[in-house]
Nucleic acid binder design. Structure first.
Length: 460
DNA sequence: CAGCGCTACCACACCCC
DNA sequence: GGTGTGGTAGCG
């Protein structure tokens, strides 16, 4: 006993001497960059607005993430950091298990879907098939509305299904195309799903079966559905929101094609009511979207790549496959330079005559107010690096200061005042590479730091 | 000390036939 | 009974 105690004492003394020779630095600052480079950013906030204010004050390419930290009530704190640094701490999946991307309001973003149904309430439903049919419908709609070509291969298919629930996230990787913001994504989604709404409006079971069988006669039924590709007209405000004009919709021939059969989207909730497979509640301001490989707190099911996924990010020599998937799965990870005023379709859409005629069919595409969309045009000189799936590093990459934060306000957009948009730079191959390779040596053994920092903030 | 942004729903007031 | 308004429980 006595001897054991002495050994312990000696051990402690040795450690004390060791710390005396090499004292710990007084303030720990997590850094991914080398000392001569600008310091890394890792900041936590209790309030979302504070986080966004900090982002505004920050010249680095930082983003807001929400972290669940209490089981039950869904309380979140907000982390501001770069994609690179988040991935560095995130990738081990030992900490930061319940992270969400905050899709900022007014930020350009990808087309995304949250799909779910209760398996017990829908024993017949084939989730995979429903996803495939939805993708088909969306691709058709993109083609109809905006002449945008896409296929199943352009869609990132993320699964977090359980025994009870089928649950998927779809993220469309459309080439050179993005939405103004997620509110516009919502407008677009509601528009293309318009024909499905009447299917859930009635409690009568026979309706869905009727439409199932009699689909080919759909155009002859007295209920003319608001074919999603009909014209739009402004509401009384003449303002931002647009509503479907029923007269236009009921006029035969006003639609480009007959209403598609969307009965496959109708599912039952656990109380037996009809609802859509597509969750329309996810297109709100500052929506939290669960990150690739994150689970909801209290659950153990993370978002993983679906079995039938066909989207594969381009292979990169410098960025790991997982990191590429992570970057591709971020809804607001959109970059590339846009110069709208040189686009013919854009000029047409802002031409007063064209506007007065309520966007005749030869005017392409529909006004931005109805949902989509604009083309992302890359500047030739930095095409290689600025593309999401770039393979090679380009020495002519513009300085990050060229890539200004965010997008102009709604008013600017609608008035066409500022037609040139520099979207945020996001994925930075150089930094990602650094995080992948060279940095572990700097921080070996400090993988737990982010959670400690979170704890510290919570205790303050 | 400490989340956020909705929408569906309800209660109530007011109006009109 | 129809319509507008204001407040809130609860969902995503």
């Amino acid at each position: 006993m006595e001897r054991k105690w002495e050994a312990k004492l000696k051990q402690i003394e040795e450690r004390a001497a060791c710390y005396e020779r090499k004292p710990l630095s007084s303030v720990y600052r997590p850094r991914l960059s080398k000392p001569e480079e600008p310091p890394s950013i890792w900041k936590l906030f209790h309030r979302q607005t504070e986080a966004f204010n900090f982002v505004k004050s920050c010249k680095e390419d930082v983003h807001v993430f929400a972290l669940e930290y209490k089981v039950g009530d869904g309380q979140r704190i907000y982390l501001v950091t770069t994609y690179t640094q988040l991935w560095f701490y995130y990738k081990s999946r030992k900490n930061l298990l319940h992270c969400y991307e905050v899709i900022p309001e007014n930020a350009v973003c990808k087309l995304y879907f949250d799909l779910e149904f209760n398996k017990h309430a829908n024993p017949e439903a084939d989730g995979k098939k429903m996803v495939a049919l939805l993708i088909e419908h969306v691709c058709k709609a993109l083609q109809e509305l905006y002449r945008v070509n896409c296929s199943a291969e352009d869609v990132f298919n993320l699964d977090s299904s359980t025994e009870e629930k089928f649950s998927r996230h779809l993220i469309f990787q459309l080439h050179d195309v993005a939405f103004k913001d997620n509110i516009h994504v919502g407008n677009f989604v509601r528009k293309i799903l318009q024909p499905a709404f009447h299917l859930i409006a009635s409690e009568d079971d026979s309706i869905s079966e009727k439409t199932g069988h009699g689909f080919s006669h759909f155009s002859e039924t007295p209920i003319k559905q608001g074919i999603s590709f009909g014209k739009m007209s402004p509401d009384q405000d003449g303002g931002e929101s647009w509503t479907l004009n029923s007269e236009e919709l009921e006029r035969p021939g006003s639609a480009k094609q007959s209403s598609p059969d969307l009965s496959f989207l109708v599912v039952r909730n656990n109380t037996g009511e009809k609802q859509l497979f597509v969750d329309l509640g996810v297109y709100t301001r500052n929506r939290n979207f669960r990150l690739y490989k994150s689970s909801k707190i209290g659950k153990h099911v993370a978002l993983e790549i679906a079995e039938d996924n066909k989207f594969f990010p381009k292979h990169s020599e410098t960025v790991s496959e997982e990191n590429q998937c992570f970057l591709s799965s971020l809804v607001s990870n959109v970059r590339i330079l846009v110069d709208l005023k040189n686009e013919v379709w854009y000029q047409k859409c802002h031409d007063p005559v064209c506007k007065a005629e309520n966007f005749k069919s030869d005017c392409f595409p529909l006004p931005a107010e109805v949902g989509l969309l604009f083309l992302l045009k890359e500047e030739e000189e930095f095409t290689a690096t600025e593309t999401m799936n770039s393979e090679t590093e380009n020495p002519h990459k513009p300085p990050s200061s060229m890539l200004s934060k965010g997008v102009a306000s709604d008013a600017d957009w609608d008035n066409g005042i500022d037609d040139t948009y520099f979207l945020e730079a996001t994925e930075d191959a150089e930094l990602a590479e650094a995080a992948e390779n060279g940095l572990l040596s700097y921080y070996s053994g400090v993988d737990e730091i982010p959670d400690e920092l979170i704890l510290q903030v919570l205790q303050e």
